[in-house]
Amino acid sequence: MIWTLRTLFIAVVCLAFTGVLAASIWTIADKPSPVNLPQLLSENLDRSGVEHPVTAVLLNFRSYDTLLEIGVLVIAGIAGISMAKTATLEDPELRTSDSLLYALQRWFVPLMLVLAGYLLWAGSDRPGGAFQAGAVLAATGVLMRLGGIPMEFLRPGRLLRLGLALGFTVFLLVAVASAIGGEAFLAYPPGITKTLIVIIESVLTLSIAMVLLALFVSAPVNDAEDSEEGSSS
């Protein structure tokens, strides 16, 4: 009896919450917002060195958000590796000798790599960018992993950790380089903004793919255990 009562109570609470939220959205939607940000954005778009507005916002106007967000991603990667069991990648149970998957792989992997490259390049003037390209690259890695192709660089070691932090480091170095040059942190020198952004995007793609793939590969958990503080270790 208590069980259903509790569910009912939670349901009522959530319903009320949704109702209030919808009502508030409804009232907010009536009045126009005072600051017209998109119009302000289009004026400054040409100074951002990139044509596509979303990439401009992501990598130039609000680049600090992206920097911290990549940091968040690296933290998830670190946590994943720290609990990883895979000493070696030669896990037999992952190796599939299924010929259909093998054939599929031979077709799909190059296609997905091209798609990732396109997405990365298109980022500057059409929808696309580092995150989407990174995700597609990671998907390719997952496919290859399922196919049993050993990927040496995913073994928890210095190389993997370097790979995880590569994108983040390059972004950070570019950010601080301009600060040393006297402008604000994360400001791009006027002339070469576009090239810098492309470099950052490509390195970011690699790192994002590496992090997402490491999370998938390191999934099986190790038995390591640290004695709780104070208990007689």
Binding site: V54, L119, P127, G128, G129, F131, Q132, A135, V136, A138, A139, V142, L212, L215, F216, A219, P220
Partner: peptide, 25 residues
């Protein structure tokens, strides 16, 4: 479109893969 791509690749794709792997585990 950007979000559509991201949602498809990351939201459905990778989250789905991780969840499926966790469920099997």
């Amino acid at each position: 479109p950007d979000i559509a791509l991201a949602e498809a690749a990351i939201g459905a794709g990778l989250t789905g893969v991780l969840l499926l792997d966790a469920v099997s585990h």
